[in-house]
């Protein structure tokens, strides 16, 4: 029946999301401890990727500060671990990242495109070296031990952060702020003259996106047990988030999630035994995506592309 089919189509997406959530929410009941750890790692990358997309996709500002916010979260956990309950530590980490991002954003978001990318890139190195200097000359230690939590708890915390992040990005896309962000991405001058407080909107969303990276860092630190400035402020986290998002495709909500899952899974397979091969693959895929798949992986999922690929057998 026509109406039945239409209402199924309308309900299909929410039903699929709910089924996915139910499967993820009960993972520890049926999956092996190893699987739980692996899925935690994958979800962590999804968080970093989607939080990057939240600000950078609509505005076109390439932020490479993800690793800085993630690191702030890690060090919040390392400093406060054992002194506060875990949820409070994670909350603190989110707030700390928010404040840092708001400061950085207010100072630098008036910089044009690549300057901003470069500034945020340097930010990671700046914090890393400042922290290293502080640790060596003031506290006298290079690394810190983090009070650890059990793997299942960490999994559910990471899942919780991801669910809140996905809801936030979904709601923002549909809100006034989302419309403002889109307008800013299309043209900042015109947006300002249309009554949008451009710097306030950019700074707010940039800071908001940092909350999730910070929270994820705080949660993951409890699993690693030991951190030092090089582990915590590793610019690879920034690059990876960008690469995964671009690979998945920025145009659609599902794109970056898909890109992050595929890449993070590949990482799980390769990173311990062939770390260089993994990063080599990541680099090549990023270049190939930009050259031949500007809409990302989701472009392949669209029917017309499939047909075209089958019909013409395009050389990759």
């Amino acid at each position: 029946m026509q109406t039945g089919k239409a209402s199924w189509l309308r309900l299909r997406t929410p039903v699929l999301w709910l089924a996915l959530l139910a499967a993820m929410g009960t993972l520890s009941l049926y999956a092996s401890p190893y699987t739980v750890i692996m899925v935690t790692n994958i979800l962590m990358y999804v968080i970093l990727t989607v939080s990057w997309v939240l600000f950078s996709a609509p505005t076109g500002y390439i932020s490479l500060a993800t690793a800085a916010f993630f690191g702030v979260g890690i060090y919040t956990s390392a400093t406060l671990g054992g002194q506060l309950p875990l949820p409070l530590i994670i909350l603190t980490a989110g707030v700390a990242s928010f404040v840092l991002a708001a400061l950085v954003g207010a100072l630098t978001l008036r910089l044009k495109g690549v300057y901003f990318a470069f500034f945020t890139f340097g930010l990671v190195e700046l914090i890393k070296h400042l922290l290293l200097w502080y640790e060596v000359s003031v506290t006298g230690v290079r690394g810190r031990f983090v009070v650890s939590a059990d793997n299942v708890t960490i999994y559910y915390i990471i899942l919780g952060i991801l669910v809140i992040l996905l809801l936030t990005s979904y709601l923002i896309r549909r809100s006034r702020v989302g419309l403002a962000l889109q307008a800013i991405g299309e043209g900042e001058d015109a947006a300002a003259h249309t009554g949008i407080n451009v710097s306030a909107v950019k700074t707010f969303v940039f800071a908001l996106s940092a909350v999730f990276a910070g929270a994820a860092g705080a949660a993951m630190a409890t699993r690693w047990g030991y951190v030092d400035p090089y582990i915590a402020f590793d610019y690879l986290f920034s690059f990876t988030a960008v690469a995964m998002a671009v690979f998945g495709g920025l145009g659609r909500f599902e794109g970056p999630i898909l890109g992050a899952v595929v890449f993070a899974f590949l990482r799980e397979l390769l990173i311990t035994r062939f770390p260089y091969v993994y990063m080599l693959v990541m680099g090549s895929v990023l270049v190939v995506t930009i050259l031949y798949l500007p809409q990302g992986l989701v472009q392949l999922a669209q029917k017309s592309t499939w047909r075209r690929l089958r019909g013409h057998r395009e050389p990759a």
Binding site: A183, E186, G187, D189, A190, A191
Partner: peptide, 11 residues
């Protein structure tokens, strides 16, 4: 309005 048009092209 602007001399060189500045519509939000993608919207």
């Amino acid at each position: 309005t602007f001399q060189s048009v500045k519509v939000f092209g993608g919207m």
